[in-house]
């Protein structure tokens, strides 16, 4: 009897969550690096082929809309001393999770943004030194004839931007 006469009524609650865009990048550890050439001890010897450093890491947090990807670009914001070339290479990130993109390999830095990692989507690398994309800087001599002794400060700017 009951089944043939069963009645029902409903009530509704709306629930949901908004997941926002996230685009965060920083360099760890803080502070600068020094790329130095040592003077030759023998007259006629070369200054040195290059100077390198791989102590810096890029940490990234990225949340994107479906289908969107991002890239990390690098550029020199000041003037590189004449006669030198500065390259940077970001290793692929192995920490964190998500779509962390692919390294572009060693990139010659200029005053124009150069892509060093591409194809980042929803991802995080974990925070701190030793996490994310390990940077290897390489300073090389382009032209001996343009070299001048002294110390110069160069700033490299990294940007996480949408494709």
């Amino acid at each position: 009897m009951a089944s043939t006469c069963m009645a029902q009524t409903t009530g509704t609650v709306t629930a949901g969550v908004n997941l926002p865009l996230v685009a965060l990048l920083d360099i760890e550890p803080v502070g600068g690096i020094t790329l130095a050439f040592t003077a030759p001890s023998e007259a006629g010897a070369i200054l040195g082929s290059s100077a390198t450093d791989n102590t810096k890491w890029i940490n990234v947090s990225s949340a994107v809309s479906s289908g969107l990807t991002r890239r990390i670009t690098a550029r020199i914001s000041s003037t590189l001393p004449s006669g030198f070339q500065l390259r940077v290479q970001a290793a692929n990130a192995s920490t964190g999770a998500g779509t962390r993109g692919t390294s572009s390999g060693a990139v010659l830095l200029t005053n124009v943004d150069q892509t060093i990692v591409n194809g980042i989507a929803g991802a995080y690398t974990l925070s701190g030194s030793g996490n994310g994309y390990n940077l290897t800087y390489s300073l090389s001599i382009q032209s001996y004839s343009l070299l001048k002794s002294g110390t110069s400060t160069v700033t490299v700017v990294y940007t996480l931007q949408d494709n």
């Binding site: 069963m6 809309s65 479906s66």
Partner: peptide, 27 residues
Amino acid sequence: QFQITGISILAPVANYSTSIIFTLIDD
């Protein structure tokens, strides 16, 4: 009480919405 799990920046950026429907049955 309600709970949503799986919150991560790995999830696509969007508004996620749902209607929770309670149905009363006189049985």
